[in-house]
Amino acid sequence: MTNTLPLADTIGLPPGWRFPHPHLLGIEGLSPIDLTQLLDLSEAMTAISRREDKKTTSLSGRTQINLFFEASTRTQSSFELAGKRLGADVMNMAVASSSVKKGETLIDTAATLNAMQPDILVVRHASAGAVSLLARKVTCSVVNAGDGAHEHPTQALLDALTIRRHKKKIARLTVAICGDILHSRVARSNIILLNTLGARVRLCGPSTLLPAGFARLGCEVYRDMREALEGADVVMMLRLQRERMCGAYVPSVREYFRYYGLDAEKLSFARDDAIVMHPGPMNRGVEIAPEIADGPQSVIEEQVEMGVAVRMAVLQALATRLSGDRGTVREAGR
């Protein structure tokens, strides 16, 4: 092998640390040290993804099932790639088009899958709490890949990793999260993570998409984008679903873009070195102007790359806990 491989031992879990939970159901309840260690591990995983030979064997022999009750090409492929790079056998199940239509309940599905002895279930579901419910009915580890408007923990982790790589820290940064906060699991996970690591979180959106009650989550609530972005280090835009922009929550696309779309004028209120993030998929011209989405401050593509690394780290951390070993990434052929 001609590649300069990072030494396997350097990618392992830090000495003395082990992920203390059987599942990753949310950011809620994770301590600052666990988040930091997961980010450190993710950082190491990015190196693997950038190698020519991306295959490792630390999850060799393990079975990972991606159980997506709600379609998501990006998240599912990111988890699939993460599992495969760690050597796991990955199976994708698009449940939306199979057993659920035949009337099987969530718990029936869980029991059926559990009987197949998987090691890790990656689950997305349209209902808040569904992943947690499923986790109580299986004996393997469960990763929440998004449950309704509740949490999407790996998204928050990949966002934090992206921020940390650019800003070298999270604590004391000002992060503005803008748009449809109400329906966003990404926003909830990010609010919790950023607060836990000491960032200052601002939320901005119309009251229909950002109820005043969000202030109780430890955020500052803004109705004016310019005020929200004033001096911000990070601007995080959220996707607005099409069905919500035609008079139900927001009157129209043009009105939403005028007051809440990120354009150069609004972005000028943020710090000059502010980074622009978006969990994707973007609606250019709805929540973000094309020249900003593809501009120099945008780190949106990097977020996608970090997504794979973070998911590798999460899978590794959970698998390690299952086996009780030291959690070192084993290289293929060693």
Binding site: C246, G247, A248, V250, P251, S252, R254, E255, R258, Y259
Partner: peptide
């Protein structure tokens, strides 16, 4: 307040 006074879809209230 609503498009065509239809009582369903919010008009472009802020614009």
């Amino acid at each position: 307040a609503t498009r065509g006074l239809n009582g369903v879809e919010m008009a472009e209230l802020r614009l």
